[in-house]
């Protein structure tokens, strides 16, 4: 099952669509819908981030910054200046794309840990501006956001939002899969394995990297805008360093270079805190241990590791194979 999810495109898309359609039968009240919506919004960010981390091989520890810019951009334009939410969202998205494009080129020249630091720094600077400029942003206590409306029609209620987010997630996954299969996507993968090698065969590595950086920032920004309108409130918590780490963890947990892995990662890590409440005082320890444990034993992520395991089993290979090899 998971293996089929992990590989062919259409099969995977159909499975995801089926999951989105069937899930409401298990959602007995709006609390469960709420969790599902949060999963969907995180998954949209992760699908974009996975293009950057998994396919282009570039780290970003600052994507919460883009998410936050999307959320606050929409919130401020729509709630403080009375813009129509759709216009606010589109303007914000364009601005975030422009920002990502501007900083992308110099930042993506950096490698490995230096890139990690630069993106982290970028995220922190955005965070500080948002917490400090409280005249616009409401500061650390946050800002109320008007509901999303198109013309006279206002989007309210978890059930409606569920279908909107579900459809958008499907669209995001479809977009990401198409990108990966396109010539640009192949160039990206070449970049991941060897940047110099890719340049030798005539790929403009810098341009490709910036392009993916911008795309991933746009995914994050749109999800941020929607999240702000959906929950009716934004606080700097979603812009903070730790949220960037959460996003990266979702991508890596599900499986780098696996679009469906990113969705699974978002689903598991979004629901985990709700499950861990039973541990009470031990919650933090268990969360840390889960993070360490999965990365140690499934360094390739859940979906690729399990997919591989299933494949090996199907081939009738040694049934007790080590998922790490």
């Amino acid at each position: 099952m998971l293996q089929r999810l992990a590989s062919p495109r259409t099969g995977g898309l159909l499975a995801l669509a089926a999951a989105i359609v069937l899930l409401p039968f298990l959602l007995s009240n709006s609390y469960f819908y709420d969790i599902a919506i949060l999963v969907g919004l995180n998954a949209i960010v992760c699908v974009g981030l996975n293009l950057l981390i998994g396919y282009a091989g570039q780290i970003s520890l600052g994507h919460a910054g883009f998410f936050g810019l999307g959320a606050y951009g929409s919130a401020i334009l729509a709630s403080r200046y009375g813009w129509p939410p759709l216009a606010a969202m589109l303007t914000t998205t364009l601005a975030v794309a422009a920002l990502a494009f501007l900083v992308g080129r110099p930042i993506l020249r950096l490698k490995g840990h230096y890139l990690a630091m630069a993106t982290l720094g970028l995220g922190i600077i955005i965070f500080m501006v948002i917490t400090t400029e409280d005249k616009f942003t409401g500061g650390p206590d946050g800002l109320s956001v008007v509901p999303f409306s198109i013309g006279e029609y206002t989007l309210r209620g978890e059930r409606l939002w569920y279908w909107i987010v579900g459809a958008l997630l499907l669209f995001a996954v479809w977009l990401a899969l198409n990108l990966i299969e396109s010539p640009a996507g192949r160039a990206l993968r070449a970049l991941h394995s060897s940047e110099v090698g890719a340049e030798v065969v005539g790929i403009d590595a810098a341009r490709q990297k910036v392009m993916v950086f911008v795309i991933s920032a746009v995914f994050a920004s749109v999800a941020g805008s929607l999240a702000a309108h959906y929950s009716g409130f934004v606080t700097p918590g979603k812009v903070a360093f730790f949220h960037s780490i959460e996003l990266v963890t979702m991508v890596v947990f599900g499986g780098m270079a696996s679009t469906f892995g990113a969705v699974v990662g978002a689903a598991v890590l979004t629901t985990l805190p709700q499950l861990l409440t039973v541990f009470k005082d031990y919650e933090m320890m268990v969360f840390g241990a889960v993070m360490m444990g999965t990365m140690i034993f499934l360094p390739r992520g859940v979906v690729p590791s399990l997919g591989r395991l299933l494949e090996l089993r199907r081939q009738g290979a040694a049934s007790r194979s080590d998922p790490r090899t």
Binding site: Y31, D34, T235, Q274
Partner: peptide, 21 residues
């Protein structure tokens, strides 16, 4: 009782859980 850890988003979800679930 739930631990919202100072996070407004968590608080929102937990309140939904308190009310609905």
């Amino acid at each position: 009782s739930y631990d919202s850890a100072g996070d407004a988003e968590k608080a929102r979800t937990f309140v939904k859980r308190l009310i609905e679930q």
